[in-house]
Amino acid sequence: MPHVIVKLWPGKSEAQKTRLAEAITKAVTEILHYGEESVSVAMEEVKAGDWAKKVYLAEVKPNIGTLYKKPGYDESDLP
């Protein structure tokens, strides 16, 4: 605990995903004062064509009030 899931489009390298996971882990440990052993980070690739249905409409929009960082677009901007 905590467990962070990053949903992103395919195409980022393993090195980029590893660096991101390390940066997230560092931020969690520094800000929330958890030990590194308590943090897990997953990457879930979602095709661009599936983003609106699988991520925005299913997870972002219904939970917009609980997001600490909201996207800079809304449903009308999606394909």
Rank of each mutant, 00 (worst) to 15 (best):
residue 25 T to C: 09
residue 59 E to A: 07
residue 24 I to R: 03
residue 79 P to D: 03
residue 60 V to N: 07
residue 70 K to S: 08
residue 36 E to M: 06
residue 28 V to F: 04
residue 46 V to F: 05
residue 65 G to S: 12
residue 31 I to L: 15
residue 33 H to P: 02
residue 17 K to V: 03
residue 50 D to R: 07
residue 75 E to T: 09
residue 53 K to P: 04
residue 75 E to Y: 06
residue 45 E to S: 10
residue 49 G to M: 00
residue 60 V to M: 06
residue 16 Q to P: 02
residue 13 S to P: 09
residue 22 E to P: 06
residue 32 L to Q: 10
residue 61 K to S: 10
residue 42 A to S: 13
residue 78 L to A: 07
residue 56 Y to V: 07
residue 51 W to F: 08
residue 68 Y to I: 13
residue 8 L to E: 05
residue 52 A to E: 13
residue 34 Y to A: 15
residue 54 K to P: 02
residue 79 P to N: 06
residue 22 E to D: 15
residue 52 A to N: 13
residue 18 T to G: 03
residue 3 H to W: 09
residue 49 G to I: 00
residue 42 A to M: 08
residue 67 L to R: 09
residue 41 V to R: 00
residue 63 N to I: 11
residue 67 L to E: 14
residue 79 P to K: 07
residue 59 E to H: 10
residue 66 T to W: 09
residue 10 P to Q: 10
residue 28 V to K: 00
residue 29 T to W: 03
residue 72 G to Y: 01
residue 44 E to G: 04
residue 69 K to G: 00
residue 47 K to N: 13
residue 38 S to N: 15
residue 16 Q to V: 05
residue 37 E to A: 15
residue 43 M to L: 12
residue 71 P to F: 01
residue 74 D to F: 03
residue 56 Y to L: 04
residue 44 E to M: 06
residue 15 A to R: 10
residue 39 V to P: 02
residue 53 K to V: 09
residue 72 G to L: 11
residue 44 E to I: 06
residue 25 T to W: 02
residue 11 G to C: 05
residue 66 T to A: 14
residue 6 V to T: 05
residue 52 A to H: 07
residue 72 G to N: 11
residue 47 K to E: 15
residue 7 K to S: 09
residue 76 S to E: 12
residue 17 K to E: 01
residue 47 K to P: 05
residue 47 K to C: 03
residue 25 T to N: 06
residue 2 P to W: 01
residue 40 S to T: 15
residue 69 K to S: 08
residue 38 S to C: 13
residue 8 L to K: 02
residue 69 K to D: 06
residue 21 A to Y: 01
residue 8 L to G: 02
residue 57 L to N: 15
residue 39 V to F: 03
residue 41 V to Y: 00
residue 7 K to F: 05
residue 70 K to E: 10
residue 28 V to D: 02
residue 77 D to T: 11
residue 12 K to E: 00
residue 77 D to K: 12
residue 62 P to G: 05
residue 68 Y to W: 10
residue 46 V to S: 08
residue 55 V to W: 04
residue 9 W to E: 12
residue 52 A to R: 11
residue 6 V to E: 00
residue 11 G to F: 05
residue 18 T to A: 03
residue 68 Y to F: 12
residue 42 A to T: 12
residue 5 I to E: 11
residue 50 D to V: 07
residue 36 E to N: 11
residue 49 G to Q: 00
residue 11 G to V: 00
residue 12 K to R: 15
residue 58 A to F: 12
residue 64 I to Y: 10
residue 4 V to Q: 01
residue 33 H to N: 15
residue 58 A to I: 09
residue 15 A to L: 09
residue 20 L to F: 01
residue 16 Q to Y: 07
